[in-house]
Design a protein around this nucleic acid. Structure first.
Length: 426
RNA sequence: GGAGAGGUGGCAGAGUGGUCGAAUGCGCCGGAUUCGAAAUCCGGUUUACGGGUCUCCCGUAACGUGGGUUCGAAUCCCACCCUCUCCGCCA
């Protein structure tokens, strides 16, 4: 959520900025009308509440002294209806304001290039060279099918489209990747390992911004009459850990990592990446989340992105870092770097990580604050999240980049300790 | 799933209809005392929102959550959620 000040006093300017950067249209007329009424209604409501409180106290005092209170009672009943109506109207207005405000995206940082879609993203850096093969490289689906390692048919029988069954050495390699990433981030990058719930309440989804706007992207359950959502990323669980809390300044930045399942409905992506395990309803990811003081969040963003890059570098996977343009960023982000890994079979780079600074956007939604020593007051934190990295896609990248002519796959050196020392899976 | 107990400020813990945003203790901050410290004493110490004459003042709201009763609710009623203990079941 944007700072309410931007949606009240500086509405015209804010609307212009959202239009320029994201092509998003705020309902200016509706917000203006609500704000105009809100002010008078709120003042009147509080006036009446004050009146009621003072009169009620007076009744209490009079009764204690054994005096007659009937005159006071009549006076109070005179404005009871108006108070009730006024309170109800105020609640309506505040709800209506929130309904709009919760659907307004974040405003991009000044360093973000303007653009409508991914074509305007800017390559920032590049690591490694795409491998050369003296044979035609196979895609991961084909490599996986050879030994029954990767079984889309069985998965489809069990669960339908966009699921995968992994078996044997490939399943182990997948597990090795997750372990390696987790060990790297906890051991060398200073992140605290956290194991999180995969099912969360609607309030958590609203906190990180999936709700109310993107419900169709989520899986949910209402078992026992309780609505819960499956997390699309551990960012939801990790970030919401600081919801409704005030973090002391010396605890910042708070760096947390989690290996988790992620669930995405992938609504609207029919026909895209249908082959193999690039786009699944269920996948694993090692997530990084940083909770930072405002003045350190952009530095933290660079650091976090580096932590994700190190994963790919240690795995020996070629990648490039893209700075997303204003039109291609997620709902809550002010600045995002995507890491794209080289996939030989597709002859292109594909997203494997996305690192975003959300500034106070999520923190405001979830009441996550820190105590600013300079002001002595609780102020919204900055939250950041990044994939460090997507495990399924990392598996694909390793398979395709490390494949041999016979369809066997070399094991990247850093993964061998997790593979019983194996140099090759065949 | 069955039986019981309970949810109050950073923590512990009083408070069963009226000046209670809430005693007391601990913690924390400031001050006094001290050569310094401990101890002791004094004062202060929640958050959100709104208004203003906007480094301060005023108001409103918040005692698990949501409703209800009442002139007035931490306190009474209803529903729900959560925690703990015992039993059952269970990875």
């Amino acid at each position: 959520m944007l700072d309410p000040v931007l949606l009240r006093g500086q509405l015209a300017d804010t609307a212009q900025r959202l239009r320029d950067t994201r092509g998003f249209e705020v309902d200016v007329a509706a917000l203006e009308a609500l704000e105009a009424e809100r002010k008078t209604i709120q003042i009147r409501t509080q006036e009446l509440q004050n009146l009621r409180n003072t009169r009620s106290k007076a009744i209490g005092v009079a009764k204690a002294k054994g005096k007659d209170v009937s005159a006071l009672m009549v006076e109070v009943s005179g404005f009871g209806d108006e108070l009730k109506a006024s309170e109800a109207r105020l609640a309506e207005i505040q709800q209506a304001f929130a309904d709009i405000a919760l659907r307004v995206p974040n405003i991009p940082h000044a360093s973000v290039p303007k653009g409508a879609d991914e074509k305007a993203n800017v390559e920032v850096r590049r690591f490694g060279e795409p491998p050369r093969f003296d044979f035609k490289p196979k895609d991961h689906a084909e490599l996986g099918a050879r030994k029954g390692w990767l079984d889309a048919e069985s998965a489809s029988k069990l669960s339908g489209a966009r699921f995968t069954v992994l078996r044997g050495e490939l399943a182990r390699l997948h597990r090795a990747l997750a372990q390696f990433m987790l060990d790297l981030h906890t051991g060398e990058h200073g992140y605290l390992e956290v194991n999180v719930p995969l099912l969360v309440q609607p309030s958590a989804m609203q906190g990180t911004g999936q709700l109310p706007k993107f419900e169709e992207d989520l899986f949910s359950t209402d078992t026992g009459g309780i609505k819960r959502y499956l997390i699309p990323t551990a960012e939801v669980s990790l970030t919401n850990l600081v919801a409704d809390t005030i973090v002391e300044a010396d605890a910042l930045p708070l760096r947390m990592t989690a290996h988790s399942m992620c669930f995405r409905a992938e609504a609207g992506s029919y026909g895209r990446d249908v082959k193999g395990m690039i786009r699944q309803h269920q996948f694993e990811k090692v997530e990084l989340v940083s909770i930072a003081a405002p003045e350190q969040s952009y530095e933290e963003h660079e650091r976090m992105t580096r932590c994700a890059e190190v994963v790919l570098e240690k795995l020996g996977l070629p990648y490039r870092r893209m700075l997303l343009c204003t039109g291609d960023m997620g709902f809550g982000a002010t600045k995002t770097y995507d890491l794209e890994v080289w996939l030989p079979a597709q002859d292109t780079y594909r997203e494997i990580s996305s690192c975003s600074n959300c500034e106070a956007f999520q923190a405001r939604r979830m009441q996550a604050r820190w105590r600013n020593a300079a002001t002595g007051k609780p102020e919204p934190l900055h939250t950041l999240n990044g994939s460090g990295v997507a495990v399924g896609r990392a598996l694909i990248a390793v398979m395709e980049n490390y494949q041999q002519a016979d369809g066997s796959i070399r094991v990247p050196e850093v993964l061998r300790p997790y593979m019983g020392g194996a140099e090759l899976i065949a």
